[in-house]
């Protein structure tokens, strides 16, 4: 919970977190080592100096550490666990649904657990999705269209097999499709930043929500264009938000464009934990104001109401969280734990 200096409570849902194992013991090959190194590079490149972690903590952190960083030291009230398999790089996967479920099992009021699918798994994958949805009561999935699989260097959401999976999601009540569209691993000549495939799906699956993680940067213009036409397309601020520290002027431009094209009801806060921690992100975001010149040019403003929506209310709506009831539940759980 974040409290403004006037004492107002801001309910925070962290839209993108991971409980990963990138440690050398779990790495299958050099790609696994280079993948976590690249994440560590992001961490180093955009974190304030006082929030830098040593590499071994970054490789693999404990459940208690994560809980503390998000909810005790950090201001999150809830967090969404996004699953990333990368089984070609890591022996037990990077952060599979099963690994993430340890967090959700331990602190059920705190976490929303999302699964994943890969349309290249064909019929077998559909069965597995059924099982996964039943086992974890999934309301969302995270898709990584640039992931390698054998000889394949990725897929598109508009592939016929992907449509079968999205149809299945609809049937299973998995309403929220988080799609990684942003800085990517291993784009060869396939344009992995391309967001055009989201456009097709959003039109063809009006009952599903498509949350485009990282807002399609570095293809913000294409993303904004699609999002303005499709009412069920949202922007996830993971990786975008940390620029608030090192490049605040740049961040203001990006955010004002997002507010102009998508509006404050369509943006979701995310720390991308463990790449970044939520405390400094939320503190800086709450203190942030758009410069006058940017406001004038786009006619947008980042009001307190907009901040509240972005930090939690929008995600609560997508995931059917009753914020007042959830606050009571969390307060009760805390009181019990303190006894």
């Amino acid at each position: 919970m974040y409290k403004t200096k006037d004492g107002e409570e801001i309910f925070i849902i962290d839209g993108h977190t991971h409980f990963w194992d990138g440690s050398p013991a779990n790495q299958k090959n050099i790609h696994g080592a280079q993948f976590i190194d690249c994440f560590y590079g992001y961490h180093n490149a955009l974190s304030p100096k006082e929030n830098l972690w040593p590499k071994d903590k970054f490789d693999k952190y404990s459940a208690e550490q994560m809980y503390n960083d998000l909810f005790v030291d950090g201001p999150d009230d809830m967090a969404i666990l996004q699953s990333t398999y990368l089984t070609d790089f890591y022996k037990n996967g990077f952060n599979t649904t099963e690994r993430n479920s340890a967090m959700a099992k331990k602190w059920p009021n705190r976490f929303i657990l999302n699964g994943a699918f890969d349309p290249r798994d064909g019929e077998r994958g559909l069965d597995e999705l059924d099982e996964l949805a039943a086992k974890y009561n999934l309301k969302g999935v995270k898709l990584y269209t640039a992931e390698w699989r054998g000889d394949s260097r990725g897929y598109k959401l508009s592939d016929p097999w992907c449509y079968k999976y999205l149809e299945r999601c609809e049937k299973l009540g998995i309403k929220n499709i988080h799609v990684h569209k942003g800085p990517t691993i291993i784009p060869l000549d396939r344009d992995a930043f391309d967001v055009a495939d989201v456009d097709h799906c959003a039109t063809d699956f009006p009952n599903l929500n498509f949350i485009v993680e990282h807002c399609g940067l570095p293809r913000l213009d294409d993303f904004c264009w699609i999002a303005v036409q499709e009412t069920n397309v949202y922007g996830g601020l993971a990786v975008v938000l940390p620029f608030i520290h090192s490049r605040p002027g740049y961040f203001a431009h990006v955010l004002s464009e997002l507010l102009f094209w998508l509006g404050e009801d369509k943006l979701l806060f995310a720390s991308d934990y463990g790449i970044w921690t939520p405390r400094w992100l939320v503190e800086k975001f709450m203190a942030f104001e758009l410069p006058d010149e940017v406001k004038r040019e786009t006619g947008t403003d980042l009001t307190l109401q907009a901040k509240k929506k972005i930090l939690g209310l929008n995600a609560a709506r997508l995931y059917g969280i009753d914020v007042e009831a959830q606050k009571k539940k969390l307060a009760h759980a805390e009181a019990v734990a303190a006894e």
């Binding site: 590079g41 992001y42 490149a45 570095p218 213009d221 904004c224 090192s246 990006v254």
Partner: peptide, 20 residues
Amino acid sequence: NVAVNVEFNGALCRGLLAAR
């Protein structure tokens, strides 16, 4: 908007290069 997109990678690339 073209520049904003380009700068996203530009800032990341410089940081990543230095970190790497």
